[in-house]
Write a protein that binds this DNA or RNA. Structure first.
Length: 576
RNA sequence: GGCCCCGUCGUCUAGCCUGGUCUAGGACACCACCCUUUCACGGUGGGGACAUGGGUUCGAAUCCCAUCGGGGUCACCA
């Protein structure tokens, strides 16, 4: 295969969608596998929705996943697997990589098309077209833009172009081909679109910016892109691109359309799902309030600093803004579905697990492990070596968060204790505030022991907070009545606890190992059949409930002084 | 609705191209048991799928057709 150039071309309208992450990963892997170039292009031709902040967020998300781009916006990640490396650049001089900065080039190409009679200026207003479209829908007919009578394919329509040049508001439309269009797809095979299916679509908007279709085709050609891997939702756009390429004399790259990633209910996984979840929660809250909207909206407005009017609009469905959804979700204590790479990062997933899991959605290495099972655990280096379009599937897959959690749990357990401690600490710092920030004030040794204890019990960094909760307990915690009855009042818990407490005074060093040994010795001395009774009594005394990691770790993390104090307090409270 | 894509356990999938080795394999989840100091981890075992109907063939999950089902897309968004 000659040189391979792939690209990932997100539009900066928010964080990177998890499906976009997979697309980027596959494009990256394909380029790496063939020793080619992977470039990143920012498709910011929608002035109203694009933002620099989003671009930055996407670059960060990609870097966090460990996906490095050879060409594109320059970026030096501060942390993560690519920390300190400068990504992007323009060694071939094919930039800039922001479409908004390439408008002059698009216009030159566009004029060429117009003068050759393959495109023309059109003057209908958006409102007028909307009305026609609506009428067509009402009549259960398919709407197609009707080519004006004075436009002849292949003939430069100078009159229209002059009006446009004179400043009249207009769009530019492409003269759709009269013939069948065939899309050759690496994954799907040949896909045929009958003659006349395509209408004269817009290639330059009234604001002077190109539409997606035109910009992509120009840029892919200008940047020498050889392989376009993207999600199947784009399949129906491809004939337009192919037609455009033919009209402009550009080569058509190899296309590969990947199956969609769906929710468990089968619908396409989209950022809007967050809004849906938040709205549902909001409605439920209102229902609880007896159907009164005002008090709920007011309460949330106060808690989130989002204007009440915006919340009302959100409730009505006028907007699906992710930021509003996130704030409302937080105010209501809802867990919004993870959709963007950033969501998974915040919830304590590992990039390795995400990459691995997402790769398996629509691709499979088709290999066996040594014990004959299907190979499904691998890293990006493996992808860079083995990824190819031949094994991309055709069927959409559902995003099973439970399986992801299992992958993440495995990835966590594959880390050394030290690695996990480092990663967990970094994550805690990133999350910053919250009731769990206290874990960061633990000294290194305690933090390390706690991390190791919590590791096998955690599916994600966030999930690790649950078993670590005991380490944050104040000394005045309350006791779980059931646990007290069972483990203190029953099983001679209090008696054993008292004896165990007495022995603790003589314990020399206070380490997980010495504590563990002390428990074992106690069990032997007391002729207990198993450590259960004393272990559970100690747990209740130290944490108020019968659940904690191993006793050695638990007592060590809590500390000698506080452990003894707590046992004494417990003895005093229930021992009388 | 038009157009396009797809259809193997609940889910992700292997097998399909190059029919027989498929009484359909693996993973996640679930259930049971074992391990156990609680919670986890781990170990062993179990139930569970070729959408339906027609062909072709000695033989079909694999090839063909139809039906049904699911999804995507129909913007001056990308």
């Amino acid at each position: 295969m000659p040189e391979v150039i792939t690209r990932f071309a997100p539009s900066p309208t928010g964080h990177l969608h998890i499906g976009g992450g997979r697309t980027a990963l596959f494009c990256w892997a394909f380029a790496r596998r063939h020793g080619g170039t992977f470039l990143l292009r920012i498709e910011d031709t929608d002035q109203t929705r694009s933002s620099e902040e989003s671009t930055r967020g996407i670059l960060e998300d990609l870097a966090w996943l460990g996906i490095d781009w050879d060409e594109g916006p320059q970026f030096t990640p501060a942390s993560g697997p690519l920390a300190g490396r400068t990504l992007g650049g323009d060694p071939r001089g094919v930039g800039p990589f922001y479409q908004a900065q390439r408008v002059a080039a698009y216009n030159a190409e566009l004029e060429r098309l117009v003068r050759s009679g393959r495109a023309y200026a059109a003057f209908e207003g958006a409102a007028e077209l909307d009305a026609k479209r609506a009428a067509a829908v009402a009549a259960k007919q398919t709407y197609r833009y009707e080519r004006p009578a004075d436009v002849t394919p292949g003939v430069f329509n100078e009159a229209r172009w002059k009006r446009a040049q004179a400043g009249e508001t207009h769009v530019v439309r492409f003269v759709a081909p009269a013939d069948e269009v065939i899309v050759r797809d690496e994954v799907l095979g040949e896909v045929r679109y009958a003659a006349g299916e395509m209408d004269d679509f817009v290639i330059r908007k009234a604001d002077g910016f190109p539409t997606y279709h035109f910009a992509v085709v120009c840029d892919d050609a200008a940047m020498g892109v050889t392989h376009v891997l993207r999600a199947q939702e784009h399949l129906n756009n491809t004939p337009r691109h192919v037609a455009l390429q033919a009209a402009m004399g550009y080569p058509t790259p190899m296309y590969g359309h990947m199956p969609l990633i769906c929710n468990m209910d089968g619908s396409k996984m989209s950022k809007r799902d967050k809004a849906k979840a938040a709205r549902a929660g909001l409605k439920q809250a209102i229902q609880k309030e007896g159907g009164k909207e005002a008090p709920v909206i007011e309460r949330i407005a106060a808690a989130t600093a989002v204007p009440a009017a915006e919340i009302e609009a959100f409730l009505k469905g006028d907007t699906d803004a992710v930021e509003i959804a996130a704030k409302i979700g937080a105010a209501l204590g809802l867990t919004l579905p993870e959709i963007e790479v950033h969501d998974f990062r915040r919830n304590g997933y590992l990039p390795g697990a995400i990459n691995n899991f997402v790769s398996l959605l629509g691709w499979n290495p088709g290999m066996k492990t040594d014990d004959g099972k299907d190979l499904e655990k691998f890293d990006t280096a493996f992808l860079a070596e083995h990824f190819g379009t031949e094994r991309i599937g055709k069927t959409a897959s559902k995003f099973d968060r439970v399986k992801l959690a299992s992958f993440n749990s495995d990835a966590i357990n594959a880390m050394s204790d030290a690695e996990f401690a480092r990663g967990w600490r970094a994550w805690l710092r990133e999350e910053g505030t919250g009731p769990y920030a206290g874990l960061l004030s633990l000294d290194d040794q305690r933090f390390a022991v706690l991390a190791a204890a919590v590791k096998p019990r955690a599916k994600t960094y966030r999930d690790a907070l649950r078993p670590a909760g005991f380490a944050l307990l104040g000394d005045d915690f309350g006791f779980d009545a059931k646990a007290v009855d069972k483990n203190l009042k029953g099983n001679d818990g209090l008696g054993l606890l008292r004896k165990f407490r007495a022995g603790l005074d003589g314990l020399g060093e206070w380490t997980p190992a010495t504590i563990h040994a002390a428990v074992e010795k106690f069990v032997a001395d007391q002729n207990l059949p198993n450590p259960g009774p004393i272990a559970q009594a100690v747990r209740v005394a130290l944490t108020g409930a019968g659940v904690s990691p191993g006793l050695g770790e638990t007592l060590f993390v809590i500390g000698r002084e506080r452990s003894l104090k707590r046992i004494d307090r417990c003895l005093a409270e229930f021992g009388a």
